[in-house]
Structures are given as C-alpha cells and as structure tokens.
C-alpha cells in the first residue's frame, strides 16, 4: 500500500507579511487516512485551500499522482480527483439537497461544450444522488432546500457532494464538528468505508479523540510550520505537540 498519492514539497503561502503556511512538506499514500491537527490559526485550512486549488502556493510545489498541480484552479483539482468539504459550510442554498449532490455529479460534464448541453435532472442522476445521500444518512431530506438544514446535516451534505465527485483524495475540513456523539460515530464508520474503497482521506479535526482514532498518521502544524509527524501514539506523547496546544510548562505536567 506504499503508493504515493499526494506530496507537498516545501509549500508556503504568505498573505502580506503573514506566513499562513511556511515551508510545509508531507505526503499521503493511497488509502491512507492522514489527520491534520494543530491549534487555531496553525494553517490547516490554508493547507486545504492550497491542495484544493483555492490558493496558489507562494513557494513550493504540490504533486498529485506525479503531476505538479501548484496554481491549478479548484475546478481542475476536482477533475483530477480532489473532493473537499468546507469548514464554513457552503451549500447551494436555494437548491434542494438532491440538486446539490447532482451539481457534483456533473463533474465530468462541465469540461466539454457538448457534454454540458445534456440534461442534468435525469432519472439516473437523481438515483445516483439519492444513493449517496442515503450513504451519508440524509436520504430522507433529499427534497428539502439545503440552506435551511441544521448544521450537522449541512456537513453531511458537504460530504455527500464531495463523495459524488468520486475523488481519489477526500479533504474533510472539520466535518465532525457540531455533530452529536452517535452522528460522529456513524460518520467515522463512513470515513473508514471510504478508505476501504482505496480513497485517501486528509482530515482536519479538533476533536482529538476522533482525530487519533481515525487517522493512520498525523501531521501537526503550528504557526504555519510543520511541528511533528507520526503515528497517533507518537504524537500523543510528543512534548512539542503538547506544548503547542497547552503552552510551555504544560508538557512537564503531562508527562
């Protein structure tokens, strides 16, 4: 399974004087679940925005399946197999939940002139969208306007849309936050199922229990820099990580 999917090579992103992400390198293999953790403002979401093409890196390169993708726009990254959710949910509010997923099903259609003229609201696309909604557990809400769902369900819709892209790499930005315990357990199962299909998952998670429990490996960011990388048990006992979260002096108490 040591098949490389994504590699960040010395990636930086500066906003004026702020180094949101500073010389970060890590890689992800096929079928791996990698947790991206770190205190608030560590640059996790910026990292996601770099990988998914929302921002271009100031320096460094992002390589997906051997192709250098630095500076590609999001719609090209989606076509290359990167599906993502957003920390601040972004539903297509006036469209129904089902139509939201159908938008993502059109991924292959938007590239060509002729293919984008075909009808979208077909029996086949409705069926496929509904199956994905049922997989994430909101099939019964298919007809509701997506803008009016409670946050937990909007997060599941985000996941459904990302899955509808049939990605090779799934980026989950705090998809678990705001979910009840049993909802989170269901979602964890889902993520493991996704991985079992060979899809790699990169997740940002504040809930340490979830992050440690799900991830094969963790990458810790702090102030835009890579602080530590390793298996959950190594990270848990890494004094630098404890310090980043709790401050100096805390590591002595923790150990």
């Amino acid at each position: 399974m040591n098949d490389l999917l994504l590699r960040l090579e010395g990636v930086s992103r500066h906003f004026g004087g702020l180094k949101a992400v500073d010389d970060v390198s890590f890689s992800l293999t096929r079928g791996e679940i990698l947790g991206l953790i770190g205190p608030n403002g560590a640059g996790k979401t910026t990292c996601f925005n770099l990988i998914s093409g929302v921002y271009a890196p100031t320096k460094g390169d992002i390589v997906l399946e051997g192709v250098s993708t630095a500076g590609f726009p999001p719609y090209r990254m989606a076509a290359l197999g990167v599906g993502r959710t957003f920390q601040v949910v972004k539903p297509f509010s006036t469209l129904s939940v089902l139509n939201n997923v159908q938008v993502a099903l059109g991924l292959k259609r938007y590239g060509g002139v002729l293919s984008s003229l075909g009808p979208w609201d077909t029996k086949a696309s409705r069926k496929e969208a509904l199956e994905i909604l049922e997989e994430v557990g909101i099939g019964h809400l298919a007809a509701s306007p997506s803008g009016q769902l409670p946050l937990g369900n909007q997060r599941r819709l985000e996941l459904a849309r990302a899955l509808a892209l049939k990605p090779k790499l799934l980026l989950l930005d705090e998809t678990f936050s705001g979910l009840r315990h049993e909802e989170a357990a269901l979602l964890s199962k889902l993520v493991l199922g996704v991985r079992a299909r060979g899809i790699s998952v990169l997740l940002i998670e504040h809930n340490m229990k979830v992050a440690m429990g799900l991830s094969d490996r963790l990458v810790v960011l702090d102030h835009g820099r890579l602080l530590a990388e390793g298996k959950p048990e190594e990270i848990r006992s890494d004094p630098r990580v404890v310090e980043a979260y709790l401050g100096k002096g805390a590591s002595a108490h923790a150990s």
């Binding site: 093409g53 972004k90 297509f92 059109g106």
Partner: peptide, 13 residues
C-alpha cells in the same frame, strides 16, 4: 449560490 463550492465541484467560473 456559492462560487467557491461550485468551483470545487468542477465548475469553471
């Protein structure tokens, strides 16, 4: 509805 999300779903703005 949401340009960033649409773009992440393969729609070229």
């Amino acid at each position: 509805e949401e340009e960033t999300a649409a773009s992440s779903m393969g729609v070229s703005p």
